[in-house]
Design a protein around this nucleic acid. Structure first.
Length: 354
RNA sequence: UGGGGCGUCGUCAAGCGGUAAGACACAGGAUUUUGGUUCCUGCAUUCGGAGGUUCGAAUCCUCCCGCCCCAG
C-alpha cells in the first residue's frame, strides 16, 4: 500500500526483458512500485511460459504486488477489430500505434490511476523530458535502432504527463547485459510481431478468426495489363515484393491496392515513389502555431525521417516531401518530428504523385 | 502436308563439341514491438523424344513430336 509521501508508480510488466528491467531500474532508485499486467485475450502461449506466469515470477522475485487487468473487451474493440476493418478497406493497419494511446496509456493507465498511482512506467525505448516551463516533450530513445517513439506519437499530453520510460536513455544491448548481470534468463524469443497473432501469420489470423473473407482478384501492372491473380488484397501492402508470384524483367512491387475492384496494382521499384501524402485524424503532442511549417516525417517504423513541408487544414494535412519517398502506405502512421522530438502524428490516407 | 524458324528450371534467357550463366518467381533463414523493405542460402546429373557420330554432345547428323511464320 502506498505510504503517504512517496508517490506510487505503476509499471506495466509483460514478463519480457525490457519491462522487467524497467521495474528493476525504478526499484533501484527507491521508487514505490505496483506492477500491472494486462490481458488482451489473444495470449499465445499457455502454461509455465505464458506471459502472465512469467510476470508472476518477476513480481515474486522483485517483491512487487501485481494487479492483473482484464483488457480483453477493450483490446478487441480498440485494436483487433480496427485492424481487421483496415484490411477490409485495403489499408495496412498499424495496431501498435493504436494500442499505446488506447490500451496501455488508455485503459491500463486509467486503472493505475484508480489504484492511486500517479504515473505508469513502460519499457518503451523513448524519452520524455520536461522543459523549464514544465511542459513534457516526447523524444526519440537513445538507441537509434530500437527506439520506439514512433509508436507513442499518438499519446496525448495528458497521457505523456503520466508516463515514464526508464529505458529511454539506454541501448537495448545495455539492457540485455544488465538483465544478464541481474541473473535473468536470456529472453529467447524477444522478437515480436503483432502481439495478438500467432504462428499462422496475420493473414491466417484474419481468416481463422472470421474477420475477413478473402476475395481473389486480378493483378495488373501500372498500365493496366493483366499479369495474374491474387488470393485476397489483405495479403498485400504497398511496397511488398514477395507473394505477387508474377515473373518479370525486374521484381514487381505492390504499388497500390484497389479494394473496390479487388485489384492489386504492381510495378517496378521506380513506380513506388511518392511526392507526398495526405494525412487525417491528426494528433498533436506539440500543437503547431502555424498551418504551414517544415517538419521531418517518418512514414513507417524503422525508416529514417525525411524532410518535408506540412500544410494543415481543417480535415488533416498535406505533407510534401523534399525528396520522393519509397512506398507511402495508406493506413500507416505518419509521425512528425523536429529533430529528436515528436510533434504529433496523422494517419496516411493516400500517397500524392511524385 | 511447299519453304523458313524454333523447342534449355514455373517464366524470360545465356550457351554454338569439353562436361548447364544470369534474372524473375518460389522456398527456407537472418533482421523486426505493424505490414513491408533489405540481406543470406537453396533451387535443371540435365537441355522436346529416340537413335547416331565422337575420348567427350544442349551444342554435329537422322528420324519422330510440338509450336511459330511465309506461301498454297
Amino acid at each position: 500500500m502506498p505510504c503517504g509521501k512517496t508517490p506510487l508508480t505503476a509499471v506495466a510488466l509483460s514478463g519480457g526483458v525490457d519491462s522487467t528491467m524497467t521495474a528493476m531500474r525504478l526499484q533501484a532508485v527507491g521508487t514505490h512500485l505496483v506492477a500491472v499486467h494486462f490481458l488482451t485475450g489473444y495470449e499465445s502461449e499457455k502454461g509455465p511460459d505464458s506471459p502472465l506466469v512469467r510476470t508472476r515470477r518477476v513480481c515474486a522475485r522483485l517483491g512487487i504486488a501485481l494487479e492483473v487487468i482484464d483488457c480483453r473487451d477493450a483490446f478487441r474493440r480498440a485494436v483487433v477489430e480496427p485492424f481487421a476493418a483496415a484490411y477490409r478497406r485495403g489499408l495496412t493497419p498499424n495496431p501498435c500505434a493504436l494500442c499505446n494511446p488506447l490500451i496501455k496509456f488508455g485503459e491500463v493507465l486509467q486503472y493505475c490511476l484508480g489504484l492511486g498511482a500517479e504515473r505508469l512506467a513502460t519499457g518503451h525505448y523513448a524519452r520524455r523530458i520536461r522543459d523549464c516551463q514544465g511542459r513534457v516533450h516526447l523524444m526519440r530513445g537513445m538507441d537509434r535502432v530500437k527506439e520506439q517513439s514512433y509508436f507513442l506519437a499518438r499519446l496525448t499530453p495528458y497521457q505523456l504527463e503520466r508516463s515514464v520510460f526508464p529505458l529511454g536513455d539506454l541501448t537495448k544491448e545495455r539492457v540485455v547485459r544488465m538483465a544478464l548481470e541481474a541473473g535473468l534468463q536470456p529472453g529467447v524469443s524477444e522478437s515480436q510481431d503483432v502481439c495478438f497473432v500467432r504462428q499462422e501469420g496475420y493473414a491466417g489470423f484474419l481468416s481463422a478468426a472470421g474477420l475477413i473473407a478473402p476475395r481473389p482478384g486480378p493483378i495488373v501492372d501500372v498500365h493496366g495489363r493483366l499479369l495474374g491473380r491474387h488470393e485476397g488484397l489483405h495479403r498485400f501492402t504497398v511496397g511488398q515484393r514477395r507473394g505477387i508470384n508474377c515473373p518479370g524483367p525486374q521484381p514487381y512491387y505492390v504499388v497500390r491496392l484497389e479494394p473496390d475492384a479487388h485489384r492489386l496494382v504492381v510495378g517496378f521499384k521506380s513506380d513506388l515513389f511518392a511526392g507526398g501524402c495526405r494525412v487525417t485524424d491528426l494528433s498533436w503532442i506539440q500543437p503547431p502555431d502555424a498551418d504551414r511549417f517544415p517538419v521531418q516525417v517518418r512514414l513507417r517504423y524503422r525508416s529514417a525521417a525525411c524532410a518535408a513541408r506540412i500544410r494543415v487544414d481543417d480535415e488533416g494535412a498535406d505533407i510534401l516531401f523534399e525528396q520522393p519517398q519509397l512506398a507511402v502506405t495508406p493506413g500507416q502512421s505518419a509521425v512528425f518530428y523536429r529533430d529528436d522530438e515528436v510533434l504529433g502524428a496523422g494517419w496516411i490516407e493516400a500517397a500524392l504523385p511524385a
